[in-house]
Design a protein around this nucleic acid. Structure first.
Lengths: 246, 246
DNA sequence: TGTACATCAGTGAACGCGCGTTCACTGATGTAC
DNA sequence: TGTACATCAGTGAACGCGCGTTCACTGATGTAC
């Protein structure tokens, strides 16, 4: 009784399993190519055509179009996470906090410019009719982890103070409600336990500003306004570094 | 010889012209409703169905689907611009710069939450296969105009200094390249002539951060992180006000 | 080592649906004399 | 004020294309004895 359940499991390590993994990778690669032109309304049939296959064959690898999209989203988060992690790790002198921040920030923009469609997939408007799975959170938090890691190292070495200095009072002066304070502390404890609150808030602001710039650049808000985008971005990165006291 | 050119011009002021205007408005309203579910891949046929019309009838009003999209984009920019302008204008004491900034900022978030699909249309990822017309720039710059207007008033009244104070040195300390400096000065002269450079840069940073927060909130980056989003936004608005010295 | 059987990848046809746009047309509404 | 004509909104059919997904099937590749 051969049950015809597509997208089956294959015994790990076998030759078939290796071929299968390669096929999955190729499908995703072709699909990524289509993201650039079609955006999020990705067509399974178009992907199959490009691979000289019949569209139904793809169901051996992905149970549905949405699952393929989900895989692409996870891959995008991880690719960005890898890029940022590598950029930070490339600064061998771990005490050069500012250099690490600048490198990580640049990596984000570089990756986004190199893969704008994938960036749009994860940081752009949600795909209509597609319900994002809940388990993207882990992959999505890899970038914040790297950024906060810089601050944690700074605190551990004593380079960053436990109390805010002059230019940082601005953020910490706000008196958040109980709910908001609880949100922020929960988030901090989950990802950067022990980090001073003012630093976490400064990092949060920087995180949002950083992606705000990249999104504005990629989504066209800088058209007819800023030509020297790389320099503008770098300047803002420096500002954020000042903000966090790096 | 009845030339059958759809989307014709009607003599202004006539009854037909009024009905026509109403129809255009209704089509756009229905289309806006569809934006919420279908996102940017808006279906002409679906709109026609909702209006109990045949799809080809829409071509009397819009020469193509892309033209309808363009109209929706322009409307969205203008609706947001109106909301922000009104919020600022509601502060009758024009010298209360900080109150004006907070009101304008809140208006942006409020509008975005009330019309998330329209917000995504103008600040989200670009629509695949749709080439945005160049003449959105005017409508798009209405929000920056209001925000910068607050700073201009502050300079005119002498409340805002021509030179940066302590917490603002961070931004102005960056030494931009010739190209970037030229970009910024050109942009400033076009929209806020005479504004001190440091203020323009602070406003630019605030502008990006503000929309960065709203986009993160709407596009799901705050899921499982921040629950008290209104308070978080307000806190960031206060920070930006500090940044600009309001 | 050889053979029988199970597993799996890929095929091709079909289902049922969607879409934008064109075009000749019918009536109703407005306009000019 | 009444009539002839032009303008315009909306129809319905068609063109030519797209899509996701299911299903019975053919062969090839692996596995167990």
């Amino acid at each position: 009784m051969a049950q015809d359940s597509r997208a089956t499991e294959v015994k790990a390590g076998s030759i078939r399993a290796r071929v299968r993994t390669e096929m999955i990778g190729e499908i995703k690669a072709v699909a990524r190519g289509h993201l650039a032109t079609d955006g999020a309304n990705l067509s399974l049939r178009a992907v199959a055509r490009d691979m000289c296959m019949v569209s139904s064959a793809l169901y051996r690898y992905f149970p549905s179009r949405d699952d393929l999209l989900t895989a692409l989203i996870l891959d995008a988060y991880n690719a960005l996470g890898d890029a940022v992690l590598a950029a930070d790790a490339a600064i061998t002198d771990r005490t050069r906090l500012r250099a690490r921040w600048l490198a990580a920030g640049q990596a984000i923009r570089d990756w986004a410019l190199a893969a704008p469609a994938e960036y749009a997939l994860i940081y752009g408007s949600p795909v209509p009719g597609y319900a994002a799975p809940g388990d993207t959170t882990v992959a999505a938090s890899r970038v914040p982890e790297v950024l906060l890691g810089i601050l944690i190292d700074g605190c551990a070495s004593g380079e960053l103070a436990a109390e805010p200095g002059v230019p940082l009072t601005a953020i910490s002066a706000a008196r958040p409600s109980v709910q908001l304070r609880s949100d922020l502390i929960t988030a901090r404890d989950a990802i950067a336990p022990g980090l001073p609150e003012y630093l976490f808030q400064a990092a949060m602001t920087s995180w949002i500003l950083l992606f705000g710039i990249v999104s504005f650049e990629l989504f066209g808000q800088f058209n007819n306004v800023i030509k020297a985008r790389a320099e503008f971005f770098t300047g803002q990165l420096e500002f954020m570094a000042d903000l966090m006291g790096l």
